Amino acid sequence: RYTFRTRGPEQMKRVVEWARRQNLSYRVEVHGDEYIIHAE
């Protein structure tokens, strides 16, 4: 189980790509310009 905090969509997309390659399920929360990605 991982939690990532990123700023801006570019970093968020990179984390999502990584999670997909690992076959993890993930969800993204948006708080202003901060993205929180939960993957497991």
Rank of each mutant, 00 (worst) to 15 (best):
R1V: 12
R1D: 07
R1K: 13
R1Y: 12
R1E: 09
R1L: 08
R1M: 09
R1N: 07
R1P: 11
R1T: 10
Y2W: 13
Y2Q: 04
Y2F: 12
Y2M: 08
Y2N: 03
Y2L: 10
Y2A: 03
Y2P: 03
Y2I: 10
Y2D: 02
Y2V: 07
Y2H: 08
Y2K: 04
Y2E: 02
T3F: 11
T3W: 08
T3I: 14
T3K: 07
T3R: 07
T3S: 06
T3Q: 08
T3E: 08
T3A: 04
T3G: 02
T3N: 03
F4E: 02
F4V: 05
F4Q: 00
F4Y: 05
F4N: 00
F4K: 02
F4C: 15
F4P: 02
R5M: 07
R5I: 14
R5S: 05
R5V: 14
R5H: 13
R5A: 05
R5T: 09
R5Y: 14
R5W: 09
T6K: 02
T6W: 03
T6H: 01
T6V: 15
T6Q: 02
T6G: 06
T6N: 01
T6D: 00
T6P: 04
T6E: 03
R7Q: 09
R7K: 13
R7T: 11
R7M: 08
R7C: 07
R7G: 04
R7H: 10
R7V: 10
R7Y: 10
R7A: 08
G8T: 14
G8W: 14
G8Q: 14
G8L: 15
G8K: 14
G8S: 15
G8Y: 15
G8D: 15
G8R: 14
G8F: 15
P9K: 14
P9W: 15
P9T: 13
P9D: 12
P9M: 14
P9E: 15
P9V: 15
E10A: 11
E10H: 06
E10K: 10
E10D: 11
E10L: 09
E10N: 07
E10T: 08
E10Y: 07
E10V: 08
Q11A: 14
Q11V: 11
Q11P: 05
Q11M: 12
Q11G: 12
Q11I: 11
Q11E: 13
M12W: 05
M12R: 03
M12D: 00
M12L: 11
M12S: 02
M12Q: 02
M12V: 08
M12Y: 07
M12E: 00
K13T: 08
K13W: 13
K13Q: 13
K13E: 11
K13I: 10
K13M: 14
K13S: 08
R14L: 13
R14V: 11
R14N: 06
R14Y: 07
R14W: 08
R14P: 01
R14D: 05
V15G: 00
V15C: 14
V15E: 00
V15W: 10
V15K: 02
V15L: 10
V15R: 02
V15H: 03
V16W: 02
V16P: 00
V16I: 13
V16A: 03
V16Y: 02
V16Q: 02
V16L: 10
V16T: 06
E17G: 04
E17I: 05
E17C: 09
E17N: 09
E17A: 10
E17F: 05
E17Q: 08
E17T: 04
W18N: 01
W18Q: 01
W18E: 02
W18D: 01
W18V: 01
W18Y: 03
W18T: 01
W18G: 01
W18C: 11
A19P: 00
A19D: 00
A19M: 12
A19W: 02
A19Q: 00
A19V: 13
A19I: 14
A19Y: 04
A19E: 01
A19F: 11
A19T: 03
R20I: 15
R20F: 06
R20Q: 13
R20M: 12
R20S: 07
R20W: 06
R20D: 06
R21N: 11
R21W: 06
R21I: 09
R21Q: 12
R21D: 10
R21H: 09
R21A: 14
R21P: 00
R21E: 11
R21L: 12
R21Y: 07
R21M: 12
R21T: 12
Q22F: 12
Q22T: 06
Q22R: 11
Q22V: 06
Q22H: 15
Q22L: 14
Q22A: 09
Q22W: 13
N23A: 06
N23Q: 08
N23W: 04
N23I: 02
N23H: 12
N23Y: 05
N23L: 06
N23T: 03
N23M: 08
N23K: 10
N23D: 06
N23S: 08
N23V: 03
L24S: 00
L24C: 05
L24V: 04
L24G: 01
L24M: 13
L24H: 03
L24K: 03
L24A: 03
L24Y: 10
L24R: 03
L24T: 01
L24W: 09
S25C: 13
S25M: 11
S25G: 06
S25I: 13
S25H: 14
Y26A: 04
Y26G: 00
Y26V: 14
Y26F: 12
Y26L: 09
Y26P: 03
Y26T: 08
R27K: 10
R27T: 14
R27V: 13
R27N: 07
R27G: 03
R27Y: 14
R27L: 08
R27S: 13
R27F: 12
V28L: 05
V28G: 00
V28K: 00
V28I: 12
V28D: 00
V28N: 00
V28M: 04
V28W: 04
E29S: 06
E29P: 01
E29G: 02
E29C: 13
E29N: 04
E29R: 04
E29W: 07
E29H: 06
V30L: 10
V30P: 05
V30I: 12
V30G: 04
V30K: 14
V30D: 04
V30E: 10
H31K: 11
H31E: 14
H31G: 03
H31R: 13
H31V: 14
H31A: 10
H31S: 13
H31I: 14
H31N: 12
G32S: 04
G32T: 03
G32V: 04
G32Q: 04
G32L: 05
G32R: 04
G32Y: 04
G32M: 06
G32D: 08
G32K: 05
D33Q: 06
D33W: 05
D33G: 09
D33S: 10
D33A: 07
D33N: 10
D33E: 09
D33C: 13
D33V: 07
D33Y: 05
D33L: 10
E34N: 07
E34T: 12
E34Y: 14
E34H: 09
E34C: 15
E34F: 14
E34Q: 09
E34L: 14
E34K: 05
E34S: 07
E34A: 07
Y35Q: 02
Y35R: 03
Y35A: 05
Y35I: 07
Y35H: 03
Y35E: 00
Y35M: 05
Y35L: 04
Y35T: 04
Y35S: 03
Y35K: 02
I36Y: 05
I36R: 03
I36M: 04
I36W: 10
I36L: 07
I36K: 02
I37L: 04
I37V: 07
I37N: 00
H38Q: 06
H38F: 15
H38W: 13
H38I: 15
H38D: 03
H38M: 11
H38G: 01
H38Y: 15
H38V: 14
H38E: 10
H38L: 11
A39D: 00
A39V: 15
A39P: 01
A39E: 01
A39H: 03
A39L: 15
A39S: 03
A39F: 15
A39W: 13
E40S: 12
E40A: 11
E40G: 13
E40P: 04
E40W: 15
E40D: 09
E40Y: 15
